[in-house]
């Protein structure tokens, strides 16, 4: 596993007779932006769920850096630097954006269990949360309740919450899902502006965005990895063309 930020070895998962992950072997080096593409039902979200521990693999192992994290609970993986966002907003509707991100900062710094001191005493936690929100253009809206934010702002808050855990590896499940096309480019511009040593894997259907923002692309079909390579390699690959052009195009 030398130097890999995240790796999986022989990952398998089935629901009854439906195979959702088939011998998945991944090696993501540090600091690389990866796109994970494939037709609907290819097992992309399932793979994220397996890596983050929300699903247990039937067989196989998962490594974060040098550490085997296969048996760790999801929250323990987060504390080791593996964060994710959700395809469908999974936020805290009645918390303000600032409260939500401050909460994530408190959890990371290990004082979210402190009940005898007031939250305002942790001034730098709130400042850090505000800085993260500001970096994602949510600074002005940070005192509004999450459910009052626009859909696009909620998508950004998804990312802000993940960043507040200070991840080494960030898995983004269709970060721009449901966001208008011109705004999604903005959103990805924000993602590509993230720290260079951060490893990012994102699921995305829009090929323009994939080719613009990914250094490498992984193509999944029926639970298995079909191709892994640079955008040019993937674009040239006949098997990929078959999947995308031979059948209906999923966007």
């Amino acid at each position: 596993m030398n130097g890999a930020a995240l790796a999986t070895r022989g990952l398998n998962k089935s629901f009854g007779s439906l195979v959702v992950a088939k011998d998945v072997e991944l090696v993501l080096p540090h600091g690389v932006r990866y796109a994970l593409i494939g037709p609907n039902g290819a097992g992309k979200t399932t793979l994220i769920n397996l890596i983050t521990g929300m699903l247990r693999p039937d067989t196989g192992r998962i490594f974060l850096g040098e550490d085997d994290i296969t048996s760790l609970a999801p929250e323990a993986r987060v504390r080791r630097g593996l964060a994710r966002t959700f395809q469908i907003n999974a936020l805290f509707p009645q918390l303000s954006a600032l409260e939500a991100v401050t909460l994530a900062v408190c959890e990371r710094r290990g004082f979210a269990g402190v009940w005898w001191r007031g939250l305002p005493e942790y001034r730098d936690a709130a400042d850090e949360a505000h800085a993260i929100l500001a970096s994602l253009l949510l600074g002005e809206h940070c005192y509004r309740l999450t459910h009052e934010l626009s859909y696009g702002q909620q998508r950004l808050l998804e990312i802000a919450l993940a960043l507040a855990t200070r991840p080494r590896v960030l898995l983004l499940d269709e970060p721009a899902a449901g966001v208008p096309r011109d705004e999604s480019a903005e959103l990805f511009a924000a993602i590509s502006g993230l720290a260079n040593d951060l490893t990012v894997l994102f699921i995305e259907h829009d090929m323009d965005i994939v080719f613009r923002f990914a250094a490498r692309i992984i193509v999944m079909v029926s639970g298995g990895i079909l191709v892994e390579g640079t955008p040019d390699e993937v674009a040239e690959d006949t098997r990929v063309r078959e999947v995308y052009l031979g059948k209906a195009h999923h966007g």
Binding site: F86, A90, L91, L95, C106, A112, L161, A162, T165
Partner: peptide
């Protein structure tokens, strides 16, 4: 004091979305 503490905020987080709480590294059960 408790509800205005970091812990109080964490409790509201659990009420609002327990799944997201684990996704930000929160030990919900404890």
């Amino acid at each position: 004091r408790l509800i205005h503490s970091p812990f109080g905020l964490a409790l509201r987080g659990i009420r609002e979305n327990a799944v997201r709480m684990s996704a930000i590294g929160a030990p919900n059960r404890s």
